[in-house]
């Protein structure tokens, strides 16, 4: 009996080893990361990088060759890079995307990261990390029509905005919503101009930077982009801000407020006048009826 039990145990052990061996043989090289980083890998498999045969090591570096057991501590010594800090992130992306990284490194976002404001937006804040999609993909946060939502994620957030930069306004999406550019989209048309169309996507710069796309000197060129407003080159795109909802001053008079007050009064007057006269007219009809009955 004892000897029999021992044989069975040895047999089970051998079968177990065999099964692990089969499982290991079925694993592709790329899937080896999956054993521990299952979440990241399954996100990555939906991404545009995966579809273009980019592998984990293209960003994270290291050596994927497996020696010995699948679950090997050996990977720790193979020189993989974990998640990079914000300051180092661009070195990841610039391996392939040299031009856009160079553009990004001119932006106010990058400038602030360099100053130590790590809340500022970096590549992954807009594009996502492992699940990066093409900007042509409707599910991508960088898809043209999703861009306002993506930007407002930070730019509408008061704590985020005020934490590191005084004077940055959080009503940019709200004021944008009132413009034809966005209303056309809400009404079922195309997005005519999204945030990045005017502010640039990678090379975002503040208004007072002479190289900024929204610097008053550059606005005619920005508005006059192909497919937008071809006649803009000779126009005066100043004397009012695109996002400024409330006031437009001429000779230190706030004309917008003045016009609004005027029309609020006009419409209230119109409503009272119209319905008042309808009511008075109706009641005078009763008066005529009553008089007729008297006669």
């Amino acid at each position: 009996m004892r000897a029999g039990t021992g044989k069975i145990l040895v047999l089970l052990f051998l079968v177990g080893i065999f099964l692990i061996g089969v499982a290991a043989a079925q694993e592709g090289v790329d899937e080896s990361c999956y054993h521990c980083h299952s979440e990241q890998v399954s996100e990555f498999e939906k991404s545009v990088h995966f579809n273009n045969n980019i592998s984990c090591t293209d960003c994270h570096g290291g050596d994927m060759k497996i020696s010995g057991n699948v679950v090997s501590l050996d990977v720790m010594t193979k020189n993989f890079t974990g998640s990079p800090s914000k300051e180092n992130l661009t070195t990841f992306c610039s391996k392939c995307h040299q031009k856009v990284t160079a553009d990004y490194e001119k932006s106010i976002h990058w400038e602030k990261i360099q100053e130590g404001r790590t809340e500022s937006a970096s590549c992954t804040d807009c594009h996502g990390i492992h699940n990066i999609l093409s900007s042509m993909n409707q599910d991508s946060p960088t898809y043209r029509e999703n861009v306002p939502l993506m930007c407002s994620d930070c730019h509408e957030n008061e704590t985020k905005m005020q934490a590191w930069y005084y004077g940055i306004q959080t009503d940019r999406f709200d004021t944008y919503k009132k413009l034809y550019h966005y209303k056309a989209y809400l009404s079922g048309g195309r997005v005519l101009a999204s945030c990045s169309d005017c502010h640039e996507s990678h090379d975002v710069k503040p208004e007072d930077d002479p190289e900024s796309s929204i610097n008053p000197a550059n606005l005619p060129a920005t508005c006059g982009k192909t497919g937008c407003h071809p006649g803009a080159q000779n126009a005066y795109v100043y004397g009012g801000k695109v996002h400024e909802g409330k006031s437009v001053y001429f000779f230190s008079i706030d004309v917008k407020t003045l016009v609004t007050y005027f029309y609020i009064l006009m419409i209230l007057f119109e409503l009272i006048f119209t319905f008042g006269l309808i009511f008075l007219g109706m009641s005078s009809n009763f008066r005529i009826l009553r008089r007729k009955n008297h006669d």
Binding site: H229, G231, G239, G240, E244
Partner: peptide, 27 residues
């Protein structure tokens, strides 16, 4: 034709025009 208008007036005039257009439409 906002950009043709902006050859004559600054952007503020266009924004005031938009404001007038809505209000007058309602009235």
């Amino acid at each position: 034709f906002p950009f043709d208008a902006m050859k004559l007036f600054p952007l503020g005039v266009v924004q005031i025009a938009i404001l007038f257009h809505t209000w007058e439409a309602v009235l």
